[in-house]
Amino acid sequence: MTPADLSLTVLHAVRRAVDDGALRVDVPPTVKVERARPGGVGEYASNVALTLARSAGRTALDVAGILEKRLRDAPGLQAVDVTGPGFLNFTLRSDAGGELVRAVREAGDAYGSGTALAGLIVRFADLTESRALLVTETVVRLLRSQGADAGFRRDERTPEESVAPRSVAEPVDPTAGPSVASRSVAEPVDAGPPAAPPTPPRLGERIHVHPGDYDPDTLGVDAARWALLRAAPQDRPLDGPPLLVQHERNSLFRVRYAHSRVRRLLANAAQLGFEPAYETPVHAPELLGVLGDHPVALLTAARHRAPDRVARHLEATADALLAFQHTVLPLGDEKPSAAHRSRLALAEAAGTVLAGGLSVLGISAPERI
């Protein structure tokens, strides 16, 4: 079960409670779930009961108890616990990793795309400053990946009215609609209360960006883009030359190296006569966690107009993968087993997420470094 699936599962529980009269509230359009904090119970948590308590005229603990009864037998959930003033805490079944890996493999580089922002229309002001243009184009790509209609004001003008300034990197169209497995945590369900009125178009929007030079001639396209996108838009861009050094302190190198390691693992496994196949549970909570959080990271980055959130998430994914990769291949005379095939499938999924995230930023994912 992915975080997207878990969010929809909780939302369906709220709807069932309303339909059978246990709760008298307006069903929210979305339910937020997030990773449980250190020391918490389970792997994910939601405060939905606290948000519904006032309108329901009941305590949050009462609301949480009502929802817990409707979540006990949900597929993919091993346990549902109520803690504190009314938090719902979720422990996933041991095979949840398999569902996540299958979701990533089915969606490919489009994993994390969704329709959470469908109906949102955003037109950004025309720009000439290098970094502002690059950041905004990347935000446009993120918004489109979440279903929004995003672009520049110049896109709405006729050629006689305006000549579009040369772009640092042309935004690419997102892939076709996502599979069910790759739905965003905020994707609307297919039934429920009447839809909210369309969001008024946001025309001429601007992102506050600290200026910075785009220098692909000196740094190359990948390092030049990472330097401007990795820092928060309002912060100074990264210093370019360190991004050319192949060292673990170089965040761009770590992310791209992690992807290349996956490609080598797949090639080495083929030489040993086995392929990725998630057949048995893999204990890799950190790696599974960041892969499951990828749709949330893309959606949050789009909403906050913050490509740096994608870059930071890719760093976390790379670090978790590099810590895990040593367990993938057989050692010595060890024969490939179901455990090795499953670990390889998980590593492959991580590589897919890295490649997809880098693509959103307009950065290449090399086969070999």
Rank of each mutant, 00 (worst) to 15 (best):
D5T: 11
A164V: 12
T136F: 00
G151M: 05
L244Y: 01
R343I: 15
G84C: 01
R249C: 02
R141H: 02
L265W: 14
S342I: 03
Y278A: 04
V245F: 02
V135N: 11
P233V: 03
E286I: 13
F124N: 04
A365W: 01
H208Y: 14
K32E: 12
T91Q: 14
S337K: 03
E156C: 10
G86K: 03
D19N: 13
S364Q: 12
L344I: 07
L331T: 14
P216I: 05
V290C: 15
V31R: 09
G177Y: 08
G151C: 10
V63P: 02
P38M: 06
V10G: 03
R144V: 09
R123F: 03
G98S: 00
H210M: 10
S55K: 12
T128H: 11
P281E: 03
A118R: 15
T352R: 06
T280P: 00
V18R: 10
P211Q: 13
G114L: 01
D81K: 13
E170A: 15
V25K: 03
E106W: 00
A345S: 06
V328C: 09
L238D: 08
L77C: 12
R309T: 07
A196M: 04
L228Y: 08
G97F: 00
R206I: 12
V10Y: 01
S337P: 02
R305S: 14
I363P: 06
W226K: 05
A270W: 10
A277W: 04
H208S: 15
P171T: 13
I66K: 09
P285H: 13
L272H: 01
D62F: 02
R343N: 07
G21P: 14
L8F: 00
P85Q: 12
K32S: 14
R58W: 10
A169H: 10
A223P: 09
S46M: 01
G240M: 10
P85W: 06
V80L: 08
P330Q: 08
L219Y: 09
A316Y: 04
T91G: 08
A345M: 01
V328N: 04
H283W: 09
V209M: 07
H12G: 07
A169N: 10
A365T: 05
T59V: 08
R249T: 04
H313D: 07
L11C: 06
A350E: 09
L228N: 02
L272V: 11
V63W: 00
L358F: 09
A191D: 15
G42D: 03
R102P: 01
V296L: 11
P281T: 08
D333I: 00
G147F: 09
P285V: 06
L354I: 15
A96W: 02
V310T: 08
R24I: 05
Q234T: 14
R54N: 02
L134R: 09
